[in-house]
């Protein structure tokens, strides 16, 4: 098994070691964890201490230890449940696009993001699951809080073949059937699908009680369209060819991109869905930090430029 640093960059892991992915809603877990469980009356036995990190509930601070050591430690109890984080990765052909002089394709970026996120989630003893999809779900790794799941994810991603068109509606419906327990669903896609299809898929997940985060991954050239010479462009999914003069087309193209993005942002805000737009040359740790801290795309729009 190849645990390639392409997926897990030590620097990223070092940057992210203090982060914890937390839900802002009640989740269903099979085991106790640090997330609020809908099930009351389970064991409240002390399990261990751990260092306080920002965001922890101060009710669990062990003040005696603080008095002795002058450091904040939390008391952990066995009755906290864990959650399952679903990583849904678009494996349609359009995700294979990598602009000139870009380090990663969109899928590679999404893979790196997913593996790093999986490592992070597993590290906090939550369960991780992954599915890749195009027109339908192509592969599925069921939820597990075992480290072995990380290796499975890596292995699966490394052998994924990018084919087909994106169909979020049907794919997410399939995932919703599999993910019966409420958890966090991160959808990594370029959103090159009908808006209705995207909205339909997200809605299905939301109805299941999942906390959905829509992560749109685009290449820099898809966002800026900064070609200078006339080009012939052949669609990765459709195969259609377009002869374009980018200089003349750029404004109209950027208008279309903005309009599409505004539509998604508007939808997500109104349906309590976090929307993030990532550029494939973005730093993975930064991207994960944004997701964890829940900063919405609208707040960091300027950073993407």
């Amino acid at each position: 098994m190849d645990l390639s640093p392409t997926y897990l960059d030590p620097k990223n892991l070092s940057d992210l070691k203090d982060l914890r992915l937390r839900t802002n809603q009640i989740v269903d877990g099979l085991v106790n964890g640090m997330h609020r469980s809908p099930f009351q009356g389970h064991s409240v036995e002390f399990a261990q201490h751990r260092e306080y990190v920002a965001g922890d509930d101060t009710r669990y601070v062990d003040w005696k230890v603080f008095a002795r050591t002058d450091k904040l430690h939390l008391k952990q109890f066995e009755n906290e449940t864990n959650f399952c984080c679903w990583l849904l990765i678009d494996q349609s052909e359009s995700m294979s696009y990598r602009g000139p002089q870009e380090p990663l394709s969109k899928f590679e970026f999404a893979s790196c993001f997913a593996v790093t996120m999986a490592w992070l989630v597993l590290n906090q003893r939550d369960a991780i699951a992954m599915a890749t999809f195009a027109e339908s779900v192509a592969s599925l790794i069921r939820p597990s809080d075992q480290k072995a799941n990380l290796f499975q994810i890596v292995e699966q991603l490394s052998r994924t073949e990018l084919i087909g068109k994106t169909s979020l509606s049907s794919s997410l419906q399939e995932v919703a059937v599999e993910a019966q327990h409420r958890g966090i669903v991160l959808v990594l896609t370029d959103c090159f699908d009908d808006f209705e299809s995207i909205a339909g898929g997200i809605e299905t997940l939301k109805k299941r009680g999942h906390q959905v985060k829509l992560l749109q991954v685009l290449d820099r050239s898809e966002l800026q369209f900064d070609f200078s010479m006339p080009l012939k462009m052949r669609g990765l999914e459709s195969g259609a060819e377009f002869s374009v003069d980018p200089v003349m087309l750029r404004k109209a193209y950027l208008d279309v991109v903005k309009k599409s993005r505004d539509q998604l942002v508007h939808y997500c805000q109104s349906h309590d869905v976090d929307f993030f737009q990532f550029r494939s040359d973005m730093n993975i740790a930064t991207a994960i930090r944004w997701v964890i801290r829940g900063r919405l795309a609208t707040e960091r729009q300027y950073e993407l430029g």
């Binding site: 995700m95 294979s96 696009y97 898809e222 080009l231 462009m233 990765l236 459709s238």
Partner: peptide
């Protein structure tokens, strides 16, 4: 003009 493969054909 070289033929390049393009993803965002919808846009």
């Amino acid at each position: 003009q070289g033929v390049i493969r393009w993803a965002a054909t919808g846009y």
